[in-house]
């Protein structure tokens, strides 16, 4: 097959090999590889659901048996229904007010009219919205603090040595330990007649910030300290000013490390948030879980399980989004 002479038999073998390539493309193995990519995760998921389905009824609690997949699915639908009917009610409430206001204005054009917000309880889905807003605010604030300080630590080893003990001590602190302190400080300092944000929101956000800034801080400082010495020499030879040096050499060089840190930070922020919301009573997913637990109805466990799955899924999606941004921004991707 590998002879170099061009004989008729070689032509035959050439067409044969072309066929073989074609055959290999659609061979059982190639198809199998592609199927494997989808099949194995599906099998894993199916096995897990089956195991869950079988085991759940065996676990008895004071609120009935542990929710089986079907119960959870049912409650997910239920929560969606509640959300929609609540939205309809809210719309009706607003249109009712608007109609009434129109009437008042027709009688007296100078009358002062107001529209009140719908006073109903937040639904599961609006709680997801609150949680996302809180986690993103906390994460954004953490990044705003961690990246500049990380750069300073990476650039200056004296500063790094001075700050290092603080990082080592505060990094492992649980959000639950911070929360009472944050709550009290926020209560004492965030005083306003017409607050823009709820205190619970501020408390949760700050707790998220305090717990999630460390990975970004550490990764940024490592990334900055690890800039290729040749590039640093280029910067010296060019006599770049401090800011040009930071923005044109150091920061781009550290971007991949910074993003690795940001992804870890966002993951931690999301985990911390649920705990913070439970205790701070911020109307997000954490509060949903806590309220359902306190409520203690026969459906509570199923509804909590819906929240657990939603939390996991959202965390996964957040990580994927960060990965996409990283691929857009980082030069090494």
């Amino acid at each position: 097959m590998t002879t170099l002479t061009n004989t008729p038999s070689d032509k035959v073998s050439a067409s044969q090999s072309a066929l073989r390539v074609l055959a290999e493309t659609f061979s059982a193995r190639a198809l199998g590889d592609r199927a494997q990519a989808l099949l194995l995760p599906t099998i894993g998921l199916a096995l897990f659901v089956a195991f869950w389905h079988v085991m759940a009824p065996q676990v008895n609690t004071s609120l009935g048996t542990f929710p089986a997949p079907a119960d959870v699915f049912e409650q997910a639908g239920q929560l969606w229904q509640e959300h929609q009917s609540e939205q309809e009610r809210a719309e009706r409430f607003i249109t009712m007010q608007e109609n009434r206001n129109a009437g008042i204005l027709a009688d007296n054009p100078d009358a002062e009219v107001r529209i009140r917000d719908y006073p109903g309880a937040p639904t599961f889905f609006s709680q997801i919205g609150t949680s996302l807003l809180t986690v993103l605010s906390g994460f954004f604030l953490a990044s705003l603090i961690a990246v500049p300080i990380g750069i300073l630590i990476g650039l200056n080893r004296y500063f790094a040595a001075a700050v290092n003990p603080l990082i080592q001590i505060f990094k492992p602190v649980s959000p639950l330990a911070w929360l009472p302190l944050v709550t009290m400080v926020v209560s004492a300092t965030y005083v306003s007649a017409d607050p823009m944000f709820e205190k619970a929101f501020i408390t949760s956000m700050i707790t998220v910030t305090l717990c999630s800034l460390w990975p970004t801080l550490i990764n940024t400082s490592v990334g900055v300290a690890a800039v290729d010495p040749d590039l640093l020499n280029v910067s010296k030879v060019l006599r770049l000013s401090f800011w040009t040096h930071v923005f044109k050499v150091v920061l781009p060089s550290a971007i991949p490390m910074i993003f690795t840190g940001l992804r870890v930070s966002l993951g931690i922020a999301w985990m911390v948030l649920i705990a913070a919301e439970m205790l701070a009573q911020n109307p997000g997913l954490g509060k949903f879980v806590w309220d359902e637990f306190q409520n203690g109805s026969s459906q509570s466990l199923s509804r909590i399980m819906v929240a657990v799955l939603a939390i996991g899924f959202i965390g996964f999606v957040l990580d994927r989004i960060m990965l996409l941004i990283q691929k857009k921004v980082a030069w090494n991707e």
């Binding site: 040749d230 590039l231 020499n233 006599r239 050499v249």
Partner: peptide
């Protein structure tokens, strides 16, 4: 001190990997 009147060519090019060829020269 270092300075551009004594330009250095490094052993492994020392180009900024995130800049294009043009931008690397442009920086200088």
């Amino acid at each position: 001190t270092p300075g551009p009147e004594r330009a250095v060519v490094f052993q492994n090019h020392a180009l900024m990997p995130w800049l294009t060829v043009y931008e690397n020269v442009q920086l200088a």
